[in-house]
């Protein structure tokens, strides 16, 4: 056993650009095991981009990400991800049960059929989210809150060590919101690490132990009480640093594939 356990999530000097326009610039973030972290920032601040970069869905232009001390390609198998609702095709021909079972694939293997135990476990996860009666519904036939709970049940079924959730509270009813909060706390108490993209300032300190303030760059990271103050929030929501984003854009042009050819 290593004396110093690897961190669940370590982001170093991360820069991400869409079409050569940087969205995140030089992010450094280290998240300790067992923390419940909220990522706060205005629209377009790069919150979802950060999560997507960790998930390997966007290739960073600079810097690296480590998950439990491994590269994010390897470490990603220990991550459970709850996607943003808009990114799902709700007409897809799967039932709620099918979706939750997908979370078990990592445990049964890619080619084997699901065992009885997997099905029971998936049903338990659904039950925990009070969704067992809807197990055979096609996912498009559920309300927004129910859909969100299905994906949380899937995350539960994955039994991951690190959870990344992209706006799980967006467009859900009050009951679901409370269910999600309880689930988050329960997972945290089990020693899991959870990172949640959040946009509601009024609930941020109640829901999360740690907050990361993000707007193009990381403005602050620390315990909710320490970070959630007027000064830092002003910095976060007070608009971008124009020089930084302009120069960042210039830098992205430097990173174009043509110039890599001659490095």
């Amino acid at each position: 056993m290593n004396s110093k356990l690897p961190l669940p999530l370590e982001i170093h000097d991360l820069t991400v650009a869409y079409q050569k326009k940087p969205v995140l610039y030089g992010i450094d973030l280290e998240i300790q095991e067992g923390s419940l972290v909220g990522i706060l920032g205005p629209n377009g601040a790069g919150k979802s981009t950060l999560i997507k970069a960790v998930m390997g869905m966007i290739r960073p232009d600079d810097g690296f990400i480590k998950i439990f001390g491994e590269t994010n390609r390897k470490g990603i198998t220990r991550v459970g991800y709850v996607p943003q609702r808009e990114n799902i095709d709700w007409d897809f021909p799967v039932t709620a049960m099918d979706v939750v079972l997908m979370g078990r694939i990592g445990h049964t293997g890619w080619f084997k059929r699901f065992s009885k135990r997997d099905r029971i476990f998936a049903a338990e996860c659904l039950d925990q989210m009070n969704m067992l009666p809807y197990a055979d519904r096609q996912i498009g036939n559920l309300s927004g809150g129910q859909q969100q709970r299905i994906f949380l049940a899937r995350a539960l079924a994955q039994q991951s060590d690190l959870y990344l959730m992209d706006e799980p509270f967006a467009g859900v009813d009050a009951v679901t919101e409370q269910t999600i909060v309880d689930l988050l706390k329960q997972l945290r108490n089990q020693g899991k690490t959870i990172v949640v993209v959040h946009h509601d300032l009024s609930t941020a300190t109640d829901y999360f132990d740690f907050l990361a303030l993000l707007n193009f760059r990381l403005i602050a990271y620390g315990s909710s009480g320490a970070v959630f103050n007027h000064d830092l929030l002003q910095k976060t929501y007070g608009g971008k640093l124009t020089v930084l984003s302009e120069i960042g854009e210039k830098k992205m042009n430097l990173n174009s594939p043509e110039s890599r050819l001659f490095k």
Binding site: M55, M57, V79, Y81, F92, V94, M102, G106, W110, S160
Partner: peptide, 22 residues
């Protein structure tokens, strides 16, 4: 038949497929 699960997951949710190491 053989690749059913892989095809299902990659078609439905790319991020989940990635986190399963597919």
């Amino acid at each position: 038949f053989f690749f059913y699960k892989i095809l299902l997951v990659t078609s439905f949710d790319l991020s989940l497929a990635k986190s399963l190491g597919i």
